[in-house]
Nucleic acid binder design. Structure first.
Lengths: 137, 137
DNA sequence: TACTTAACGCAACTTAGTTGCAAATATAAA
DNA sequence: TTTATATTTGCAACTAAGTTGCGTTAAGTA
């Protein structure tokens, strides 16, 4: 095994290609989550949808992005920030979707899941739906 | 407007067809949720998938079934029972999916969602993932 | 600069879910 | 029981999200 292989194992294997940088840029510009459908649409002139899907997978593997399933069953991605919700398993946290404007984001509120007899809970996917600050007024 | 129309408005418009009865039978045989994909597969010889989708929609409109999105983004249906989780909005309740055997069911445990400043929460979709009693041992 | 291998684009594919329309059938009225 | 009629069904074709295989391109290393 060559040194470069070891480096790859340690550092992840993502090459900082033009496409990767462009995609990361979109996530750096916002704290909101972005749906894959939206990303494919926004990047339509810049890269193929296959590339979008594959880059998202890699960034997720590396712990740079995480994903969750939105109200509609579509996949959404958001940056991993250090935070998580204390009482939830696996450093997870709830997400919020505004039913009016569609704004979708991570929440770091604490929600505690009571133990359930004869079950082990290893993950909690919590999606709160309502109106965001902008849509309330 | 004829009397029959008024009756329809009051009672819902579901005719108790052979297909409706068959589909309801599947839900009466279990307290678990069933994915649409599974229903289409199980009923493949008895009705078209279009019919499965349309009956599920109608039974949901009438409050006989409810649905939620599973871990994989697929739609699952379950019977509406009188119960709900006290602290959740809109008479909703959490759902559980066993990551080993796939068993999926309604939970009526109480999970309270803390208020979030400047947001109104109108629905909470909570999916707990872990091991069921059968898969624990 | 040249080499190696990850990353990319494309086209074709899979799967969940939807739609339009003509034919079948459940229900109410006669 | 028969008739009328509006709902329900099946079919085939479609849409949309997401995946795969493969030949080509380009990033990172020597």
């Amino acid at each position: 095994m060559q040194l470069s292989c070891i480096k790859h194992l340690l550092m992840g294997i993502t090459r900082k290609t033009k496409s990767v940088k462009r995609l990361l840029q979109l996530f750096e510009q916002t704290n909101n989550a972005i749906s894959v459908v939206e990303l494919v649409k926004r990047l339509d002139q810049e890269m193929s949808k296959t590339t979008v899907y594959r880059i998202l997978d890699r960034l997720e593997d590396e712990g740079i992005l995480h994903f969750f399933i939105g109200k509609d069953g579509l996949k959404w991605f958001a940056k991993c920030r250090g935070e998580s919700s204390p009482s939830l398993p696996l450093n997870s946290h709830p997400h919020f979707q505004c039913q009016n404007c569609g704004k979708t984001e991570c929440l770091f509120i604490d929600i505690s899941i009571p133990p359930i007899a004869n079950f082990t809970i290893e993950a909690a996917e919590i999606l709160l739906i309502g109106l965001c600050e902008d849509c309330l007024s």
